[in-house]
Design a protein around this nucleic acid. Structure first.
Lengths: 109, 109
DNA sequence: ATTTAAAGCAACCAGGAGGTTGCATAATGT
DNA sequence: ACATTATGCAACCTCCTGGTTGCTTTAAAT
């Protein structure tokens, strides 16, 4: 049995990624450049305040980090949680592959 | 620039994974065994009807497939979408790594 | 034939998510 | 000094989500 009781719950992380706007913000930031809220809002269809809320969600999930620079908040991408969920998905895939392999061995005997 | 305009929007897929109950259902099913709604509901803290709703979300996301067997609905894991989101995350990670590499080259010259 | 078990369906409810407007505050630019 | 820009904060609104209860239908078990 796949036992994930020792892992932190990845659901909130997936939830943070489960929004088009947030994915788009993340994609922009994943080019390594740091951006202000105004910079991230300029080409969005929603208000600056809505973007701020999305950035808060991303930051709470650890996907982004912000630092104050003068009157601006500069946001940067944080890749660590991405690694975490890839590891989680690897676990799920592995359990599946193992199940298939057991079935194959059973059928072929 | 990372261009994801040709890809199907992965946000709904992430959203489907963004719930503890659904992740737990998926984890159970990823062992390769097929299960009825009653079987999946028995050790859950919520009602059978709530489980049914979660299964519908998972099925809409393609993460699970159901077939009727007599009066029962049997659910099975579908690994394909997992591969899709891993590919998506690989793209994000790659863009990030490339950015770091460019920075390194720039700094070291 | 009757009872029991599995599932579908609909109505309802509370709370959260995503968005807005409006206003205040604090740096920057001129 | 004054005007402008970037952000923060709060109130509000609507719709969706995750959950419930209650009832019906259908298959299986006795």
């Amino acid at each position: 049995m796949l036992n994930d009781s020792h892992l932190p719950d990845p659901a909130p992380l997936f939830a943070a990624l489960g929004d088009r706007t947030r994915l788009s913000l993340l994609t922009k930031l994943s080019d390594g450049q740091t951006r202000s809220i105004a910079g991230l809002s300029s080409d969005a269809q929603i208000t600056r305040q809505a973007v701020t809320k999305h950035l808060k969600v991303l930051e709470d999930a650890g996907l982004v980090i912000s630092t104050k620079v003068g009157r601006e908040s500069h946001f940067a991408f944080r890749p660590e949680p991405i690694k975490d969920i890839r590891a989680y998905l690897d676990g799920v895939s592995r359990q599946w592959d193992d199940a298939l392999e057991r079935l194959r061995v059973f059928v072929e005997r």
